[in-house]
């Protein structure tokens, strides 16, 4: 007879599976947002645990900024194929062509405009619930958000007027046009995610691991050189050993210096790390103390 302690990962996993099944059972037309990033990779494993041997009772969707790292897109498509599930891709390029998004310059960060494409896709497919991989430890506006986070017809989050969430009795009800964002891994930290990836032996895109890359140093951090980011006057390109802690828009997602070349090394580094995930890697979250809060009020994930 083996004795296994019920670990914090077991507790978090069971909670997340319970949440996903509630969405499937109570929402008419849910979708799971899959970007190819580590948090949504964890969501897919949790969905397998929640619904196999059945199919997922929802499609997967990616809101593509077209500023994504090619390795991540390649990974995304491969993972979906392995699972045999359906992926919807809606691209910001469409929103730009339709005039729904107006950029000041081609290379501008597209993170904040994702909301427009997301809201358009929600309207197109009449999704009443979007399952996402956001976590409360990421940012202080997230820390106050419910697991089932209600959005009005304009996709807006009203932090002062949230539905009370008690026990694990989730209120999933919406009127037509409204929707709910559901965050099954709300209570996970960055370290929990990596420990779970290790435990479940999940594959993640290569850019999470240490590699040599051309970067430029800017005030807020390192930026990866790409067709979107080129050195300005006075800046020089350096070769560095780096990895990404988040994957997002190439024009504003900063890598960190690291030698962590496998999941165990990342766990060790994450346990020791002294800077929050978004603080280290997202220039758009550093612009003001309330950046995330403001974007969420406009419909951002």
């Amino acid at each position: 007879m083996n004795n296994h302690p019920f670990t914090h990962l077991d507790a978090l996993e069971s909670e997340a599976i319970h949440i996903m099944r509630e969405v499937a059972a109570e929402c008419a037309n849910p979708v799971l947002l899959f970007s190819g990033g580590k948090d949504s990779i964890v969501l897919l494993r949790l969905a397998e645990k929640a619904f196999r041997p059945g199919r997922f009772p929802f499609s997967l969707m990616h809101i593509d900024t077209e500023h994504n790292f090619p390795e991540v897109i390649e990974f995304r498509d491969r993972r979906v194929k392995e699972l045999g599930e359906r992926l919807i891709v809606r691209s910001m390029e469409d929103s730009i062509k339709k005039g729904r998004v107006v950029l000041r310059s081609e290379n501008q960060s597209r993170n904040s405009f994702q909301s427009v494409t997301l809201l358009d896709a929600i309207a197109e497919f009449r999704f009443d619930a979007c399952i996402g991989g956001a976590r409360r430890d990421e940012e202080k506006a997230r820390a106050k958000e419910r697991i089932f986070s209600f959005r009005d017809e304009f996709g807006q989050w009203d932090p002062k007027n949230q539905r009370p969430e008690l026990w694990d009795l989730y209120n999933t009800r919406t009127h037509p046009g409204e929707n709910i964002r559901v965050f099954p891994i709300s209570n996970w930290t960055e370290l929990d995610v990596w420990e779970y990836i290790a435990r479940e032996n999940l594959e993640v895109p290569e850019i999470y691991f240490a590699h040599t890359r051309e970067v430029i140093r800017r005030a807020a951090g390192l930026l990866p050189v790409s067709h979107l980011v080129q050195p300005q006057a006075g800046e020089k390109i350096e070769q560095m050993t780096v990895r990404f802690r988040t994957v997002g828009d190439m024009s504003c997602t900063c890598p960190v210096e690291s030698d962590a070349a496998n999941v165990d090394a990342i766990i060790a580094e994450t346990a020791m790390t002294r800077i929050t995930e978004r603080g280290a890697t997202r220039m758009d979250d550093q612009t003001s103390d309330a950046s995330m809060e403001l974007r969420k009020k406009e419909g951002y994930f």
Binding site: M1, N2, N3, P5, F6, T7, D10
Partner: peptide, 14 residues
């Protein structure tokens, strides 16, 4: 299936 017993006295989440 393996016979396993889960112990909850060391539950890792409070």
């Amino acid at each position: 299936s393996a016979i396993e017993k889960i112990s909850f006295d060391q539950t890792g989440l409070l």
